[in-house]
């Protein structure tokens, strides 16, 4: 057997190994989703979505948790989006490229990998206790904002970096200031990538449980929040709570809530993919 044949064999082996791994992952996902669907799908109806939590599983609904998730999502967006994008722009366009910037860059990337419960502890100390916000929607949103800021910053920087420098050159050469160049050229050209990053980060935030439990999001909140200072629950915490109950009815509820949570995440990821494709096609 000569070396070309050997390489080809290796190639083939690697290809099948890859297909194998992919199928395994997919199969697990399908089994998981199938199982959840079987358990939960018949439980989903309008009543389930609009009912408050109750001690009886058949009467329980996800209304408070769903509203809590929406409130949290809303405030996390309006906190993390402007700060993260501004920080990304600053680091990419204004920050000097020196050693300090290098250290900062590595640290931001590292922050994206810190376990989320650590952010919960930070939120508990800073927002709940020092800033005295209590276990409120605002405290939860601030905590989740901290959690996703690194992701938003990194996504912003990557999208800005992807804008061809020839576009910037052209803008500067016509007499545009730095801010005009950022506002009229760089941001429009990178908005698809930035939005993709932000949505993916938010879809991670919707699924987060640990940091919110630490901050004090209660499992049993009788009413949906009506202001940022109200207490709240969110879908994953509701699910967690139901799963730990002994009655079979609650397991069904949990499965149904999981389906809704998955639906929300898939939707968000779908929107993100849509933006990314639209953005990529612009440069071809």
């Amino acid at each position: 057997m000569n070396s070309i044949q050997k390489n080809r064999l290796k190639d083939q082996a690697f290809k099948y190994w890859g297909i194998c791994c992919t199928c395994m992952g997919l199969a697990l996902l399908i089994i998981f989703i199938g199982d959840i669907l079987i358990d939960g799908i018949q439980r989903i109806d309008w009543g389930f979505i609009t009912s408050l939590p109750s001690r009886k599983p058949e009467k329980s609904g996800i209304y408070t948790a769903l509203m809590g998730s929406i409130w949290i999502l809303f405030f996390t967006t309006i906190i993390a989006f402007p700060i993260g994008v501004a920080a990304g722009i600053y680091l990419e366009e204004y920050g000097k490229k020196n050693k300090l910037a290098g250290i900062l860059e590595i640290n931001i990337s590292n922050l994206a990998g810190v376990p989320s419960i650590i952010y919960g502890l930070l939120g508990l100390e800073v927002f709940v206790r020092i800033m005295n916000l209590g276990a409120s929607v605002l405290a939860g949103s601030l905590t989740l904002s901290l959690l996703i800021l690194p992701i938003v910053i990194v996504a912003t920087r990557e999208s800005i970096k992807a804008v061809p420098s020839s576009i910037k050159d052209a803008s500067y050469a016509l007499g545009a200031s730095k801010w005009q160049t950022i506002w009229y050229q760089i941001l429009p050209a990178s908005s698809g990538g930035i939005l993709t990053g932000v949505i993916l980060a938010l879809s991670r935030a919707v699924g987060e449980t640990a940091p919110l439990i630490v901050v004090g999001a209660l499992a049993y909140v009788p009413f949906a929040p009506e202001s940022p200072m109200d207490e709240f629950s969110v879908l994953p915490i509701q699910i967690f709570n139901w799963i730990s109950r002994p009655q079979h009815g609650f397991i069904e509820n949990a499965a149904a809530a999981i389906i809704i949570l998955l639906f929300i995440t898939f939707m968000m990821n779908g929107i993100a993919v849509y933006f990314r494709n639209k953005w990529q096609s612009k440069w071809k």
């Binding site: 020839s166 050469a173 612009k282």
Partner: peptide, 12 residues
């Protein structure tokens, strides 16, 4: 002082 570059670079 205007400038024209080597590679045509219209804005998108």
């Amino acid at each position: 002082v205007g400038m024209v570059f080597q590679k045509p670079n219209p804005f998108p």
